[in-house]
């Protein structure tokens, strides 16, 4: 397996994912320091892309870098294979990265209308955790969440930071369709459905924000590295915000 990994003395491990991608490992488990390094490295790379760079996929402990093999082979980076050339570039960038200390995190507030028709499982979550509905809303909207990665379906953010007092198992019977914008809890995780898809999460509210919109330059509203807070809004405000955004009511 040694041939699959870059042979350098740097603190990152680079491995072959496909002819068009490598993955860079920054740590072994989910923690704040790894999260910060990946976010910083990702920002640095996307601001300083090599020739042939396509995109990155951020995950809990890895950053995967996708590229055009032909363009990379045509570049003057040192190495005789695409993998060697990319590894050389990423190692160099990693050495540079230590010169950059902090990254301005995007802080995003997402309005949520809790309960009612938008949050059919709010009471179930409250009952399961021996809390009142108001306490559930308070706990859910007072935490600060970090977006670790975007995955599962377009625009879906894996977020950490939910108060464990809200942990609730998935529904025994998944719903055939969960409305886009629905905010749910599954175990110790909370997340927002970017598209209307089937799903088994316990739904406690809905946001009028489109988490994924193909008409935007950047279709995904959230990105890995974001810091997110939820703000409770009432139904009237929900409709106002829906109207502001697309000029019609969103049912």
């Amino acid at each position: 397996m040694i041939s699959l990994q870059s042979a350098t003395n740097s603190d990152i491990l680079i491995y072959f994912l496909s002819e068009e991608a490598v993955s860079v490992v920054f740590g072994q488990d989910i923690n704040e320091a790894t999260f910060k390094r990946i976010s910083e490295f990702n920002a640095l790379l996307t601001c300083n892309p090599f020739i042939g760079f396509r995109t990155t996929v951020v995950a809990y402990t890895t950053l995967s870098v996708f590229y055009s093999p032909i363009e990379v082979m045509q570049s003057v980076l040192p190495g005789s294979t695409g993998f060697e050339k990319i590894s050389a570039y990423l190692d160099l960038l990693n050495a540079e990265a230590t010169k950059y200390y902090s990254l301005k995190q995007r802080r995003i507030e997402i309005p949520i209308c809790y309960g009612g028709i938008f949050g059919p499982d709010l009471q179930e979550i409250a009952t399961f955790n021996r809390l009142s509905a108001e306490e559930v809303i308070h706990l859910h909207s007072s935490a600060v969440y970090k977006v670790y990665m975007i995955g599962f379906v377009p625009g879906f953010a894996y977020m950490g930071g939910m108060d464990e007092r809200l942990a609730t198992p998935r529904k025994a019977q998944p719903r055939q369709a969960v409305h886009a914008g629905s905010v749910g809890i599954a175990g110790k995780q909370t997340g927002i459905y970017p598209l209307s898809i089937p799903g088994g999460w316990q739904i406690l509210g809905r946001t009028p924000i489109h988490l994924f919109d193909i008409n935007r330059m950047r279709p995904s509203f959230l990105e890995a590295g974001d810091e997110v807070r939820f703000k409770a809004i009432d139904e009237q405000r929900y409709y106002e915000l829906s109207n502001l955004k697309d000029g019609h009511q969103d049912h």
Binding site: E20, I150, G151, R218, A224
Partner: peptide, 10 residues
């Protein structure tokens, strides 16, 4: 569309 994998678009 290989450019949008970072946004979880296949």
């Amino acid at each position: 569309r290989p450019m949008f994998r970072g946004q979880a678009v296949p």
